[in-house]
Every structure is written in C-alpha cells, then in structure tokens.
Design a protein around this nucleic acid. Structure first.
Length: 437
RNA sequence: GCGCCCAUCGUCUAUCGGUUAGGACACAAGGUUUUCAUCCUUGGAAGCGGAGUUCGACUCUCCGUGGGCGCGCCA
C-alpha cells in the first residue's frame, strides 16, 4: 500500500517551529517513499481559524518548500460526517450517551476494561498500557460538536492515512485513537512520535524563549533552506558526519528509524551558523540577486560600483541578508552613517586629521592605486611615525566606511576607488577639525 | 497522585555488545600587531547513579534519580 501521510495543523495565525517540524518530517517521509503528503486544516476553532490564519499557514509551508498533494481537507466541513460516525458507534455499542457533565447529552466512547492496548511506534518502539489505566472519553459534546479525537481519527480514516507522524505529546492519545479505529472497523495506521523541541529548561520551546514562529525567522532574515536543514537535525541525523544537506539528499536519506526519541534543545547559535553557511554556499547569481535587491530596497544606487568585487568580499561575511544595507551602504553612497564607538576610538585621537590629510595626499600622488601601493603608503607612514601599520589602518577604515569592520582595508580602498577614498579622507579630516563628527 | 515516554561533550548528534567514544555548533589558542568574516591547524569538553546478564556493556534487563508528556464536553 502506498504511503499517505498528513500534516494536520490548527491554524492560529502563527506557525510554531515544533509544528512545522512535524510537517517537515511528514513531507520528507512521503517524498522518500514516493507517497502522498496531505494537508488537513483542523479549523474547528472558528474563533482563531480565520482566513488570514489559514493564509499564514499556507505561506509558511510554501516558504519552506513543503508542497502538498491533493486538495487540502478542511475539518470544519466534515462535522456532519464525524457526528454520523459517532451515531454509528452508539449503534454498535462502542459509545453511549451520557448527561453527567455539562448541559445536555454528550456521546462517550467506551475504552476497553481489561487487557492491554499496545502499538509499535516507528521511532519509540513498543508502547503499551493496561486497559484499566484508560478511561472512557467524550467524542461529541452536548452541543453536538465533535471532539478532537473523533474528528482526527475519522478524517484519518477518510483520507486513508497510512502513517501518523506527529509530536511526542500525542503518545497517550494514540491509545484512544487506536480503539477508535478498531471500533470504526478501519485499518490502523502506523504511528511515529517525534520528540519535542525544548528550551534550556527542558520545557516545550515557546515564544517566551525567542523566535518560535516560522514568520519570525523569515522576518529576521533566515533562509528557508537553512531553517529546514536545522530543524531536520533536531531529532534526526543521516548516520555519517554530514550536516549540511541538499533537499535531494534529505529526501533520499530520510527514514524514521534514524529519528531520535529524546527531546532536542533549540540552539539558535547553530542556526545562525547554518544560515551563514547557506549564504556562503549559494551560487553567485542567487546571492547577487538578493544582494542587489536588498541594497536597492534600502534606497541605494549600485550605479558605478564594482558589484562583483563587493560581493566577493561580502558573501563570505554575511550571516543575514537583512544586515546587508547597513554593512554595505558606504559602497553606494557618500552619505553613510558613522559608527559612534568607532569614531570615538579611532578618529578622536591626537593627530588623526593630519594623518588622514597626509594619506589622502600620498594616495592622490600614487601612479597606481592598488592593493600593494595603498598598503605600502600606510606601512611607510607607520614606520616613519613608529606606530606601526595598525594605527594607520583603523582610522582610515572608519574614515572611508564609517565602520570598524568589513573587508580587508586595501581591498576596500580599491573597491571604492581613489577619488572617493581621497575625498572621504579629506572630508573627515575637515569635519574632525570642525568638531562636526 | 496514577500512567506513558526519555536520558552520550555546554548544545545538536554518531555508535545499533568489543572504538584512543567520532563529527558539528559554541568556546580557547595559533596561522593573522589591519578589523570583521572566511579558511586551516590545535585544544579542552560526554556515556545520570546502582545492581544484573555477558569473556566483554554507552549499547541488553531491573531498580533508583532527574526531566518531559498525558490524565478536558481544548486541539
């Protein structure tokens, strides 16, 4: 029988990373097996399940490349079917009406009273429980609406789901679900329960622990491929030492028996590293497209700039695309901001304006303005003053870029070009004398 | 309280009875008295405790301990 799995989120307006990870594992499992990955929107909470919330959900899935097969099923449209199944269960004697709890009569499902219920979890192994430790439970509320367990199982039956891959927090529910499947007379799916993503305290990772929703990662400049890869490594490993994998490798290598059964802490530092790793590995055209669009979106013009040279320098040191305008503005405009600490530390020192003027003068007189010559001028000056190259480099860097970090200074100078460099050095010297910086 | 699940470096993990317990992130040092980053090299860093099974346990079993989850007319 061919594999059919589903992602069954209830749209709340935000998509939690723990949730999307379940989607990711389901997707990988389906793609690996050549089966179907289905989407079921559990929108029975009409308050929160707005059209907007559903759009957010779909957008997050698309962003991560989690494409689904067949039309999405909207659970709220299946209510009549759920209730009909409950009626059927009453007829079979598997459920009964009761009025003890709230208002009117609800429908309660009968759990076995003796023996044991057990199943083989594809990641956790055999899980069993004595029947006496289970209790009958409500499947239709007294207002006539179906409860999660019923809806979930009936939909899985109707969608012919073969494998239920979901969070750890459902291991207990599975006993109820199995009995429901049996009572309905439907074949049991196989189960796989994924460990949870937890915070430093071992509690389920939540918005209080940092970015917890897919949308936040997107806003903060994470690449979907990096997030995807990182989330996969939380609970799964290929078995060899590879960590950065292509989507194809993931699909090919993914199996549930390689999933871990213990919870994983969310370590943002590794995600940050991985994001930089993905940016570095991107083909130049991809990086270039993103780079240019970020620069232009910040209102800067790339006219006349040595884009290829700049990108050579910047691709290896970019961790987030979102930081590009700030880290590169000085390449594209003379009106760039100065880092206050850098100014204080490198420019507000005795003799700096004179130094900058002198450098400008020497640079202007150079027969060729290149890596070697620009370096030699500063080296000679440092030598003459007995202060070394470092004390030349730092003020010049801040003067021409406003920043204390960036490409190697001489690479940076050549990329800017002699005219801009000299003009900026003189301008900064003037502003320093005028106390305007 | 009852039940279920889990337990390797600080973190993510490899190991499926025999390894100097490997890799990655992070950290530290060096290559690099021009920064940041990249790259390379090096370093420190782990089997929760106790029994048992076995010639031999990180690995299997049991008992503790710790943590998580479940026990809704929530999903």
């Amino acid at each position: 029988m061919s594999v059919r799995v589903r992602f069954a989120p209830s749209p709340t307006g935000n998509v939690h990373i723990g949730n999307i990870r379940a989607a990711l594992f389901n997707w990988l499992f389906a793609r690996h097996a050549g089966g179907k990955f289905l989407l079921r929107v559990e929108d029975t909470d009409r308050e929160r399940s707005t059209d907007e919330a559903i759009r957010t959900l779909l957008a997050c899935m698309e962003w991560l490349g989690l494409d689904y097969d067949e039309e999405p099923v909207y659970q709220s449209r299946q209510t009549a079917r759920h209730v009909a199944v409950a009626e059927e269960l009453i007829r079979k004697g598997a459920a009964y009406r009761d009025a003890k709890g709230g208002g009117g009569e609800c429908v309660i499902f009968r759990m076995p009273k003796e023996g044991r219920i057990e199943y083989t979890d594809l990641v956790k192994g055999t899980i069993r429980k004595k029947a006496e430790d289970t209790q009958d439970f409500v499947i239709v509320r007294s207002d006539g609406t179906p409860v999660f367990h019923l809806a979930n199982v009936v939909d899985d039956v109707d969608m012919a789901i073969t494998h239920v891959i979901r969070g750890d927090d459902h291991v207990e529910n599975t006993f109820k679900h199995i009995e429901l499947f049996k009572a309905i007379g439907a074949p049991l799916p196989q189960y796989a329960h994924l460990p949870m993503i937890v915070n430093n305290q071992g509690k389920p990772y939540s918005k209080r622990d940092g970015a917890a929703f897919v949308g936040e990662f997107k806003e903060q400049g994470y690449l979907p491929e990096a997030l995807f890869n990182f989330l996969l490594l939380l609970g799964w490993a290929p078995g060899d030492d590879r960590e950065v994998l292509t989507r194809e490798e993931m699909v090919q290598l993914f199996t549930l028996d390689r999933c871990k059964s213990s919870a994983a802490r969310f370590d943002i530092k590794k995600l940050v590293w991985m994001n930089g790793e993905y940016i570095r590995r991107q083909p130049r055209e991809v990086f270039a497209a993103e780079f240019v669009s970020r620069v232009r979106a910040a209102g800067l013009s790339t006219e006349g700039a040595d884009l290829a040279g700049i990108m050579d320098q910047m691709q290896i040191r970019t961790k987030f695309y979102s930081e590009i305008p700030a880290s590169c503005a000085y390449f594209f405009t003379d009106d760039f901001p100065f880092d206050a600490k850098g100014v204080e530390k490198r420019l507000k020192a005795e003799g700096v304006p004179e130094l900058l003027d002198e450098v400008a003068e020497k640079y202007a007189a150079l027969p060729a303005f290149d890596l070697q010559s620009t370096h030699d001028v500063l080296a000679a000056l440092g030598e003459a003053r007995g202060t070394g190259l470092g004390s030349m480099v730092h003020p010049v860097r801040v003067a021409v870029s406003g920043l204390t970090e960036g490409p190697g200074l001489f690479e940076l100078l050549v990329l800017l070009g002699r005219d801009k460099v000299c003009a900026r050095l003189r301008q900064v010297a003037r502003r320093l004398r005028d106390g305007a910086l």
